[in-house]
Amino acid sequence: MRRLSFVMCLALAGPAAAQEVGRVGVDWIGNDVVIEAIDDPKVQGVTCHIAYFDRSLIDRLKQGNWFEDPSNAAISCRQTGPIVLGDIDRGRNGERVFSESRSLVFKSLRVTRIYDEARHTLIYLSHANELVEGSAKVAISTIPIAAQP
């Protein structure tokens, strides 16, 4: 299922690609917590790490929900080099940095960047996007940046 999600993500041509950097087994049936690194494609010097639950085949058989993974995730973003702001969306709604399918069609995990210009801070929000029902499963990470001359 993980490969299917990845292939679907590539097919949709998401804004940024994630690189798996860690995987921790959490039980005997093969469920894992996956950690991925996402470099912001429009802000040089920023990397976000996102952690999420990846269901095993055994769990899918047991639960009966074949085509869906949980959409909650943790996020932490840090400055990994000199920050160079590219042509980013500076509006209140921000801009999608990353999106990955969490079900066959109707749900995705997203990372959205919002720039708080008054406080010179980049805000990264991980959240679920669901077609039918919204989700309150969110996480946030901020990066203060030096004022641009």
Rank of each mutant, 00 (worst) to 15 (best):
residue 2 R to V: 08
residue 2 R to M: 01
residue 3 R to K: 11
residue 4 L to N: 13
residue 4 L to P: 05
residue 4 L to A: 00
residue 5 S to G: 14
residue 7 V to L: 02
residue 8 M to R: 15
residue 10 L to N: 15
residue 11 A to P: 02
residue 13 A to M: 10
residue 13 A to S: 14
residue 14 G to L: 06
residue 16 A to F: 02
residue 17 A to C: 07
residue 19 Q to E: 12
residue 21 V to C: 05
residue 22 G to H: 12
residue 24 V to C: 01
residue 24 V to K: 13
residue 25 G to T: 15
residue 25 G to E: 15
residue 27 D to W: 12
residue 28 W to Y: 07
residue 28 W to P: 07
residue 28 W to D: 15
residue 28 W to K: 15
residue 29 I to W: 06
residue 30 G to N: 07
residue 32 D to L: 10
residue 38 I to D: 08
residue 38 I to W: 08
residue 40 D to L: 00
residue 40 D to S: 06
residue 42 K to R: 14
residue 43 V to M: 03
residue 47 T to M: 01
residue 47 T to A: 03
residue 47 T to E: 06
residue 49 H to Q: 12
residue 49 H to T: 06
residue 49 H to P: 08
residue 50 I to S: 04
residue 51 A to D: 10
residue 51 A to Q: 14
residue 52 Y to W: 07
residue 53 F to M: 14
residue 57 L to T: 14
residue 57 L to W: 15
residue 59 D to E: 13
residue 60 R to I: 04
residue 66 W to S: 09
residue 66 W to E: 08
residue 68 E to F: 07
residue 68 E to C: 06
residue 69 D to L: 00
residue 71 S to P: 01
residue 72 N to D: 10
residue 72 N to V: 09
residue 72 N to A: 03
residue 73 A to P: 04
residue 77 C to T: 11
residue 79 Q to A: 04
residue 80 T to Y: 02
residue 80 T to P: 11
residue 80 T to S: 00
residue 83 I to M: 00
residue 84 V to C: 06
residue 85 L to V: 00
residue 85 L to H: 08
residue 86 G to Y: 04
residue 86 G to N: 09
residue 86 G to D: 10
residue 87 D to T: 08
residue 87 D to A: 02
residue 91 G to R: 02
residue 91 G to M: 04
residue 92 R to I: 11
residue 92 R to W: 01
residue 93 N to Y: 01
residue 98 F to A: 03
residue 99 S to I: 02
residue 99 S to E: 11
residue 100 E to V: 12
residue 100 E to N: 10
residue 102 R to Q: 11
residue 105 V to R: 04
residue 106 F to Y: 13
residue 106 F to L: 06
residue 108 S to C: 01
residue 108 S to M: 02
residue 109 L to Y: 01
residue 110 R to S: 08
residue 110 R to G: 07
residue 111 V to W: 05
residue 111 V to A: 03
residue 112 T to D: 09
residue 112 T to R: 03
residue 114 I to E: 08
residue 114 I to R: 00
residue 115 Y to H: 06
residue 117 E to C: 05
residue 119 R to K: 15
residue 121 T to R: 00
residue 122 L to H: 12
residue 123 I to R: 03
residue 124 Y to L: 02
residue 124 Y to V: 05
residue 125 L to N: 14
residue 125 L to R: 14
residue 127 H to D: 08
residue 128 A to M: 05
residue 130 E to C: 05
residue 133 E to K: 14
residue 134 G to R: 14
residue 137 K to G: 05
residue 137 K to V: 10
residue 138 V to C: 09
residue 139 A to F: 03
residue 140 I to R: 14
residue 141 S to F: 09
residue 141 S to D: 11
residue 143 I to K: 00
residue 146 A to H: 13
residue 147 A to F: 06
residue 149 P to D: 02
